[in-house]
Design a protein around this nucleic acid. Structure first.
Lengths: 277, 277
DNA sequence: GCTTGAGGTTCACGTTACGTCAACGTATAT
DNA sequence: ATATACGTTGACGTAACGTGAACCTCAAGC
């Protein structure tokens, strides 16, 4: 018979651990002296205790270990549990590897970008959304901003609950004669089209959520947004994704100043993970 | 200005998370309405919040993130933190791989061994110990047991605080004419030698702790102990260790029955990890 | 004006596997 | 008789939130 202290020394664990295992009904002392409450462990119990430690080292939780010991589990079931655990660890392992890659790419980004103000890319899942939108050819992005302002001032108030968005259907490198789709996200689609006071017609469309979106938020006007596009494409490249649709912008905050420095935009790139990257 | 709910939806996190980050001074709303306590976030804050999320995804703790943001950390320092984190993950990764190997070897063991009663091997670190011991040639292991009993009965009581141990210096396959060292572990070495009442002389020696020991506890007499040796050597083989000294046995419990079925022994194999296994 | 529902708030507890006091009872050695 | 070494229970802390209760506020519909 050993006291907790002796047993703990032998097994090289803390006394507190033994009491804890007693408390959670995982491993109880052979005998408890009723008068003093002292715990006494038998030498035979060392083998059982080592079994617990061994299972713990394999990564099983104490709950699982208790079940494995209590329920007189069959070898098959135990095997199943361990296979499961193995798969779990492998999964986690893949995650860790990805994290390392991300860190590496991020480090590279830091080295590249001395300003230290690079935007932060976050992957989100975005559902399908209904929009009222129109499509126009405009000369440049400045004209796009004017369109935004126009939309905002002429759109009926009841449709202003959603954000404005913009999709550039022309090629990236085009800087003139842009094919823009602009509009507003509506939560409950009521009308299939809508004529504004100035004769402009918006039609009901659907923005299919490609579900997986690489997004970033930039604050500032045209130039900053360009930077945002640049760094998000780079991020996509170095993080095992590829483009899977046409990007869009969400206008989180309308500019109140002419310079547009307080403009806040969320850029969303539909992406898909490259398998086995 | 967004309410928590709106901001949470946009950022695709829970409201609770935002309140929590407020509480721990990690990310506070732009404005809090004094009358109602309502939190209001500005669109500009979305970029900051995404930075936090991005850092979190890289595996930094919230504490680290807060420091990184508060202390106006330099790129160099941030790089240092991330390199550190990377090393940490790589370390952990190696650990996970080892765990998978262990699980695999354990699964193999389960498949091999239908009894399900295989001993459980635990790695311990054991310091140097002083012993009073004698060395004898005996015919077989039965004779060893007799020696144990003899020692126990003749040893002065004051030296009985430590466990008895036994080291077999002859080859494993030898079953006759065994070269055994037996004795008792003493906590405070007093005499350099000791003569028992029957004329036997024990001398003070040192059991150098090879520190790393693969150990297992078996209950039963000779045959069970043999099984223990077998499975521990197998375990060493399949878990990336190699033998690094001569094994020893610790007598956790003296047998009270002639059969010796209640004998409890801890077998200890000094081992070292195989590098890059 | 009242209710309703959707939002908001704080407070407190649950999670995992223990470590760390604190206050107090017990066994042993001098 | 007492010092001290060891035992007991109990409560709180950990990381990063999730969950639920109890209660307050706001805008809209009747």
């Amino acid at each position: 018979m050993f006291t907790v202290g002796d047993f703990a020394r032998l097994a090289q664990v803390s006394k507190r651990l033994l009491r804890y295992y007693d408390e959670i009904d995982l491993f109880k002392p052979n005998r408890i002296e009723p008068s003093s409450g002292y715990r006494f462990y038998s030498a035979e119990q060392m083998a059982d205790f080592n079994r617990i430690l061994a299972l713990k080292e394999l990564g099983l939780s104490l709950d699982q270990i208790r079940q494995a010991l209590n329920d007189h589990i069959s070898t098959d079931e135990l095997q199943g549990m361990m296979l499961l655990k193995k798969a779990e660890i492998e999964q986690q392992l893949r995650g860790e590897i990805q994290r390392i890659r991300k860190i590496e790419s991020r480090l590279q980004l830091i080295r590249d970008d001395e300003s230290g103000k690079s935007p932060n890319v976050i992957v989100k899942h975005i559902p399908d959304q209904h929009v009222l939108s129109m499509r126009r050819n405009v000369d440049d992005f400045e004209a796009g901003m004017v369109l935004y302002a126009h939309l905002q001032s002429t759109l009926p108030r009841r449709l202003r609950d959603g954000f404005f968005f913009c999709i550039c259907h022309s090629d990236y490198d085009t800087e003139t004669n842009l094919d823009l789709e602009m509009g507003v996200i509506v939560s409950k689609p009521a009308d299939s089209s809508l004529m504004l006071s100035d004769g402009t017609t918006l039609t009901l469309n659907e923005l299919t959520g490609t579900t997986t979106m690489a997004t970033t938020v930039v604050q500032g006007a045209l130039e900053t947004i360009h930077l945002g596009y640049a760094s998000i494409t780079k991020w996509i490249d170095t993080n095992g994704y590829r483009l899977a649709g046409v990007p869009r912008e969400l206008l989180l905050q309308f500019p109140k100043t002419p310079s547009g420095n307080d403009l806040v935009t969320e850029i969303q790139f539909p992406v898909e993970a490259i398998p086995n990257w």
